[in-house]
Design a protein around this nucleic acid. Structure first.
Lengths: 207, 207
DNA sequence: CCTACCGATCGGTAGG
DNA sequence: CCTACCGATCGGTAGG
């Protein structure tokens, strides 16, 4: 019983650390974040952190792995049997929704890219590349069937990623340009609609 | 004469420092870069750096200002009298060219955004917002004239920025997915062509 | 422009 | 899980 209690506290504390670390790493980067600040935000002493994560680098890696599961994985694949417009719209809307719901995940991922992806390179060359391959296969099939115009599938997916993630990663710029204190759901919806309209129209076959 | 010689050396050294700082700040961020490493790359002693830039923050700001002049300013405005397709194509091609030629500038700018743009916020709310306003005016004029489909000009420019800068900021991901060691000019050209094709077709009026 | 060095911060450990 | 503390690093300065 005492054992069980301890374990529950440990699980809860570890979660608190992960949440605090995600927030700070995403806002200040790896080097701009101190273990002391993470400890504060997680309401613990700094030395105690090391009971849960041996080193700062370990904690950072743990946070990155958390992100991969919520950020990259849930992006389902396109259904080749489906209607291209419906399928791509769903995908784009989902990506914008992710940028809105998990901006910190997006930013920590972006920060990792800016630094050359030292930790995530393995994931990029493995699982992510496979995802793009599956995506490309569907796009190419649609092109062969004349359902969409000929287009390089890889550049298409980069275009979708770039334009959707932009709303999370460049939020200060977007807020400044739009002159709003905060982006609310309707702003994101408008963004998704604009992106969908242009890309779907851009891909629509002649006639 | 001795004075002149000194000045020339000083100018040359300051330039060396700026170049070294841009390279390291863009790769490792502000906190991940040490004055010692900048000094090494600039072939100087670390204390000597402080004769040219009082503090690390001053040097960082100087680098950011350098970037604004080469990264944001030269993006000419759209010519409202011109053909939308020609004008937008020119703009997109130029943006991709900038991502290819000045990836470090793009990355340091992106890093600044990720951290909330503490230093660049003034620029975003001033000059940059004006640029977007000018861009929007032209787009709206084209829409009124039926030259392009109705579209939110602000989301359009975000879409162009997002999809073009992506090739500089997310280069590790792009290289991993495309399975190439380096992106050469033809890759960037293909990217520009894909982006142009989809966006221009997406904006083309009915008929 | 260099040598020498400072004060502060930070990640991590000892020991209980 | 805490107190106390370490070794190392780093930005910046003194003094010449």
């Amino acid at each position: 019983m005492t054992e069980k209690k301890k374990t529950r506290i440990k699980i809860r504390n570890e979660e608190k650390i992960r949440v605090a670390a995600l927030k700070l790493f995403s806002a200040y980067g790896f080097h701009g974040t101190t273990m002391e600040k993470i400890a504060e935000l997680a309401d613990m002493s700094q030395p105690n952190l090391h009971n849960y994560f041996k080193t700062k680098a370990d904690l950072y890696e743990a946070v990155l792995n958390d992100i991969l599961t919520v950020w990259v994985d849930p992006i389902g694949s396109l259904d080749v049997e489906g209607d291209p417009e419906t399928e791509l719209r769903f995908y784009i809307v989902k990506k914008v929704e992710m940028a809105r719901k998990y901006p910190e995940a997006s930013r920590i991922f972006a920060g990792e890219m800016l630094q050359g992806a030292p930790i995530l390179m393995h994931h990029l060359k493995g699982p992510l590349r496979m995802k793009v391959r599956a995506f490309s296969t569907v796009i190419e099939s649609w092109i062969r069937q004349g359902k969409i115009r000929p287009v390089d599938p890889v550049h298409l997916i980069f275009m979708i990623w770039g334009s959707t993630q932009h709303y999370a990663d460049f939020m200060p710029q977007i807020r400044a340009v739009m002159d709003v204190a905060r982006l609310n759901k309707s702003d994101f919806d408008a963004a998704a609609e604009s992106i969908c309209a242009i890309i779907l129209r851009g891909l629509a076959p002649v006639g």
